[in-house]
């Protein structure tokens, strides 16, 4: 569903992403681990066609992102690290707005259903977003993915700054999305969350993918050890 082929990006002579090959199938949660500056966000930005790759290709649903920017964006939902919504609109209104941008018109019942499915408390649905916590805003983002039946979810550090309960909440939401058949790419530095939630784990350092592991095959402590080894090299 999501694929990068020899994806490379140079910024002013520095290589941010170096020959990256990723393949993420539907129903998979792929966690991309790496320190700050490893190239995780750059990768996501290329998948969003914020800027074109210097070399290689980013594909979503078999289409090149650069060639079909709007088509590919229709199939994905992106939740940035600090998901910002319009503060003076309610959660439901925000959902309706962003759905509308992809040509999807929701009934009130649908909005409420999607937001509830994403785990938002019914009382909060019609409150202004300026009263929301970060976790609640992310739930609106997930509701957006549900509403649009996105095939691909791109998450950039979604759990940073969440308290453990909210983080756990979010992890279960991701599993729900996985069960609905979404391909999830989650960039994070949270080793614990990667091991718990992810199906596969990729470790990036200085733009290169160093290692790929099956989350089920490795223990927490081994993952940490592997990660630290890659960081040193």
């Amino acid at each position: 569903m999501l694929k990068t082929i020899n994806l490379t990006k140079h910024f002013n002579g520095q290589t941010a992403v170096n020959d990256l090959n990723l393949t993420i199938a539907s129903g998979e949660i792929y966690c991309l681990l790496g320190a700050n500056g490893a190239g995780k966000t750059t990768t996501i930005n290329m998948l969003l066609n914020v800027f074109p790759p210097s070399a290689g290709k980013a594909m979503i649903g078999g289409m090149s992102v650069t060639e079909n920017p709007l088509e590919t964006k229709k199939r994905l939902t992106y939740i940035p690290e600090n998901l910002a919504l319009y503060p003076n609109l309610t959660g439901a209104e925000n959902l309706r707005f962003f759905c509308g941008l992809s040509g999807l018109n929701l009934t009130n019942a649908q909005q409420e259903a999607h937001l509830t499915e994403a785990g938002l408390q019914p009382v909060a649905i019609h409150k202004r977003v300026e009263t929301y916590s970060k976790g609640m805003r992310q739930k609106v983002g997930v509701a957006l993915a549900i509403a649009r039946s996105s095939d691909v979810l791109l998450l950039d550090e979604p759990t940073s700054g969440l308290d453990p309960a909210a983080s756990n909440d979010f992890a279960r939401l991701l599993e729900h999305m996985k069960d609905r058949g979404a391909a999830v790419l989650m960039a994070t530095h949270d080793l614990f969350r990667a091991k718990e939630t992810g199906t596969r784990i990729g470790i990036m350092n200085r733009g290169k993918l160093m290692d790929e592991l099956n989350a089920a095959d490795i223990s927490h402590s081994d993952l940490e050890q592997v990660y630290l080894n890659h960081m040193k090299s």
């Binding site: 969003l48 914020v50 709007l70 088509e71 590919t72 964006k73 229709k74 994905l76 939902t77 992106y78 940035p80 600090n82 998901l83 910002a84 919504l85 319009y86 503060p87 962003f98 941008l101 992809s102 983002g141 791109l154």
Partner: peptide, 18 residues
């Protein structure tokens, strides 16, 4: 500034149009 730009950018529409 508020960050909604990032979300808008991931939508299947051209930002210039918006």
């Amino acid at each position: 500034e508020s960050g909604t730009y990032a979300l808008l950018q991931s939508q299947p529409i051209s930002i210039a149009n918006v």
